[in-house]
Amino acid sequence: MLHLRSLVFNVFFYLWTGLLLLVMILLLLLPGDRLILGIGLVWGRGNLWALRVICDLKVEWRGMEKIPEGAILVAAKHQSAWETFAFFLPFRRPAYVYKRQLAYVPLFGWAVWKARQIPVDRGKKGEALASITAGAKIAASIGRQVMIFPEGTRRPVAAPPDYKYGVAHLYRTLDLPCQPVALNSGMFWGRKSFIRRPGTVLVEFLDPIPPGLSPTEFAERLEADIEGATNRLIAESRARGEGEEPLTPAGGRN
Rank of each mutant, 00 (worst) to 15 (best):
L7W: 09
Y14M: 14
Y96N: 06
L22K: 02
W49C: 10
G199Q: 05
W189M: 15
A71P: 09
L19V: 13
N231T: 08
A134H: 14
E223A: 07
A134E: 14
A81I: 12
P180Y: 06
I226Y: 06
Y165H: 14
K77M: 07
P156F: 11
D33W: 01
Q101W: 06
E60N: 11
I25K: 11
A95R: 10
I67A: 07
A136Q: 08
A182R: 02
E127V: 15
D207G: 04
G251W: 12
K137Q: 13
N184C: 14
I72P: 03
A168I: 05
Y98K: 09
E242G: 06
A75R: 05
G70I: 07
P198Y: 04
L20T: 07
F12Y: 08
R191Q: 14
G228L: 01
A50K: 07
T17G: 14
G252W: 15
L37M: 03
G40H: 01
N184Q: 14
D225S: 15
K124D: 13
A71D: 05
E60Q: 15
G70R: 03
A224R: 10
H169M: 13
L30M: 04
L213K: 04
L37Y: 02
G166C: 04
V97W: 05
N184P: 08
W43T: 01
W189Q: 13
V201S: 03
V74F: 02
F87W: 03
P119T: 08
L170R: 03
R196S: 08
Y171M: 10
E223C: 05
P160T: 08
V59M: 08
G18Q: 07
P215E: 00
A182Q: 00
P68N: 03
G63S: 06
A140Q: 08
P161M: 04
R172D: 02
W16I: 13
E65N: 11
A219Y: 05
N47W: 11
L22F: 10
V105E: 01
P249F: 11
D207W: 00
A86I: 05
I209M: 06
L107F: 09
W61F: 13
A182M: 02
I209Q: 02
R92L: 14
V23N: 04
K124H: 13
E83Y: 12
P211C: 04
Q179F: 04
F85Y: 07
V59C: 08
Y14C: 13
I234P: 01
S80E: 04
L4F: 15
L176Y: 04
Q145N: 13
L28W: 00
I54W: 03
I209D: 00
E245R: 14
W113Y: 15
A130N: 13
V11H: 06
P68H: 04
L174M: 05
L15C: 14
V97R: 05
R240G: 11
F87A: 04
F85W: 12
R93G: 09
G135P: 09
Q79N: 10
V11R: 10
Y163H: 02
L28V: 00
W82S: 02
V203E: 00
L89Y: 14
Q117V: 10
G123E: 03
G63I: 09
V167C: 00
N254P: 15
A111S: 10
F194V: 13
A103V: 05
I142E: 12
L21H: 11
K137S: 07
W110C: 01
L73G: 01
